[in-house]
């Protein structure tokens, strides 16, 4: 009885030590900076920055190959957060990458026009479009990030971007208005 407990315990201890050693010895180092940058990006995977997704863009920023102002969905908020993280000066969004959208939109397919070509399905970075060849497609509204990548490939132009209606589920606190360059009250003096 005691031998059994001791033997199994010793075996487990040896294995535990072996695995613990292996975990240290064979540790794979990811770049922690990439993780942090990736966490700040909006994860729309829209590719408007010129990279095939948010993580590649984060990698490029970490390597210094890309600037921090190339993310239209994130807008000024993301740029400021990135500047904070990297200790750089925030700058305005690069107009070459696109405009910051004022309101959140989702794609909607006019289903009577859709010819079922599947081109938009292939364009969608988040798999939010459902459909099959020669069958009508539709957008899963909950998954759509509003990146507009599906609009251009559609041959019959049946995809519209519509603003998201605000309801109890999607309502969020408005950010307080930025206390930007407030003119100094001169009359006080």
């Amino acid at each position: 009885m005691l031998t059994a407990i001791l033997a199994l315990g010793a075996l487990a201890l040896v294995f535990g030590l072996l695995l613990g050693f292996a975990a240290v010895r064979f540790k794979v180092e990811g770049d922690p900076l990439v993780e942090k940058i990736d966490a700040l990006l909006p994860q729309t995977q829209c590719g408007q920055c010129g990279f095939p997704g948010c993580r590649p863009y984060a990698t490029a920023i970490a390597k210094g190959e890309a600037d921090i102002n190339q993310c239209p969905p994130g807008g000024q908020t993301t740029i400021v957060a990135l500047a904070d993280l990297l200790g750089r000066d925030p700058k305005p969004l690069n107009p070459e990458n696109g405009q910051e959208k004022v309101e959140k939109t989702v794609a909607i397919i006019r289903e009577d026009i859709c010819i079922g070509c599947t081109l938009c399905i292939q364009a969608c970075p988040v798999d939010a479009i459902l459909g099959a060849p020669k069958q009508m497609h539709t957008v899963i509204e909950k998954e759509c990030t509003g990146c507009e990548l599906c609009v251009a490939p559609c041959p019959v132009e049946c995809i519209d971007m519509i603003p998201v209606k605000e309801d109890i589920g999607s309502w969020k606190w408005k950010a307080p208005p930025a206390p930007a360059t407030r003119p100094r009250a001169e009359s006080d003096a």
């Binding site: 072996l18 695995l19 292996a22 975990a23 064979f26 540790k27 794979v28």
Partner: peptide, 10 residues
């Protein structure tokens, strides 16, 4: 487990 770790590294 061990195989997985070694493989992940090398």
């Amino acid at each position: 487990q061990f195989t997985e770790m070694v493989m992940h590294k090398h």
